[in-house]
């Protein structure tokens, strides 16, 4: 029992960063943009939040956790939205190839994260390891009372606010896409921009808005990892390939944000299942870490084989749109 509870906790802990990324990427892909820059954007979001709170804590004698957290969230949103903006300008306005831009952005973003993560203490005058304990404490604060309950407490209430935010955002994203006019318009843009355009929808504006806000949401995944998961520190490449897993999760969830919620926990579980399988040596453990990717590949093949209309990627995914093209 104890073991199962810990496993679920850890799976959720692994899954939340991926869920943020997937929710952001779903919004982006629903507008027809396949943003392969999400992994880089998540790095940018993570390090920016960390840097923001780091300088805040450095400059104050008694930093308040709440202010630190606010600064971290704002810095993250701004930096990752900036990443989304770069992608949008290049692919929407300048009509560059989406995959190429996305990959360049990932190179840039990962470098950005690792560079500042590795050099920030030096740039700040050599204060040693960066650590923002105070701010991180705000991110790691559990729900008082509820988290003390047996079983239910640890499984449902033992997380920081970003965890709940990620789920709320996914639900909101689902409602936005399926229950609002703007969501309907956005989906139309991703399916067939020419049709959306003819219906009077400002295709570029929707693409910009979806891509930039998608990037901002994804960036929170980086922040979650740095603050709640790592407790306010940075290790280079520590975030690993979670950004790519987020893109994989979009496929697993078949572009449905609600499915992404449980999908993220499944992914998180698959990611760490090796710890809970007895008798594995270190080498075999590495092979188990393949599971999320293999599951994604299987889902990808099955959906392409079934070829059901509603379960396909947005029809215009990956291509740019220009009205006066003939």
């Amino acid at each position: 029992m104890e073991l199962i509870i810990t496993f679920i906790q850890k799976a959720i802990g692994q899954g939340i960063a991926i869920l943020f990324g997937a929710t952001g990427e779903i919004a982006t892909e629903k507008s027809g943009n396949l943003n392969l820059g999400i992994p880089g954007i998540m790095y940018m979001g993570g390090i920016s939040g960390l840097m923001g709170s780091f300088f805040y804590e450095l400059g104050h004698q008694n930093p308040s956790p709440g202010v630190g957290a606010l600064i971290a969230v704002v810095c993250t949103l701004v930096a990752s939205a900036l990443g989304g903006l770069i992608y949008s300008v290049l692919t929407i306005t300048l009509r560059a190839n989406q995959n190429v831009v996305g990959l360049a952005l990932t190179t840039f973003g990962t470098g950005f994260g690792n560079f500042f993560g590795g050099s920030i203490s030096k740039l700040a005058g050599g204060v040693g390891q960066i650590s923002v304990m105070t701010t991180a404490s705000a991110f790691q604060k559990k729900l008082p009372g509820l988290s003390e309950l047996p079983v239910i407490g640890p499984v449902f209430f033992s997380y920081g606010f970003l965890t709940y935010l990620s789920i709320v955002l996914s639900v909101l994203m689902f409602l936005f896409l399926n229950r609002t006019r703007m969501g309907l318009n956005l989906r139309a843009v991703g399916e067939d921009p020419a049709t959306a355009d003819a219906a009077g929808i400002n295709v570029s504006a929707y693409k910009y808005a979806a891509t930039i806000s998608g990037a901002a949401i994804a960036g929170l995944g980086g922040l979650y990892f740095v603050m709640e998961y790592l407790g306010g520190t940075w290790t280079n490449n520590g975030f690993g390939d979670r950004g790519w897993l987020a893109i994989a999760l979009v496929i697993l969830a078949l572009w449905n944000p609600l499915s992404a919620v449980w999908g993220s926990i499944v992914f998180g579980g698959l990611y760490i299942i090796y710890i809970y399988i007895p008798g594995l040596n270190r080498a075999a453990q590495e092979l188990y870490k393949m599971l999320p990717y293999l599951v994604t590949i299987i889902v990808l093949v099955i959906t392409s084989k079934r070829n059901k209309e509603e379960k396909q990627p947005p029809a215009s995914l990956g291509s740019s749109y220009f009205r006066e093209e003939r």
Binding site: R179, T180, R181, M182, L184, N185, R187, A188, E191, D192, A194, T195, A196, A198, A199, G200, I201, E309, E310, Q312, A315
Partner: peptide
């Protein structure tokens, strides 16, 4: 035809229109 294949007739008809934001 400029219609979105995966949408219903009604969804296509109200596409791009102003109006109540939430559509229950």
């Amino acid at each position: 035809f400029k219609l979105i294949n995966v949408f219903t007739a009604a969804e296509n008809i109200i596409l791009g229109l102003e109006g109540k934001n939430i559509l229950s």
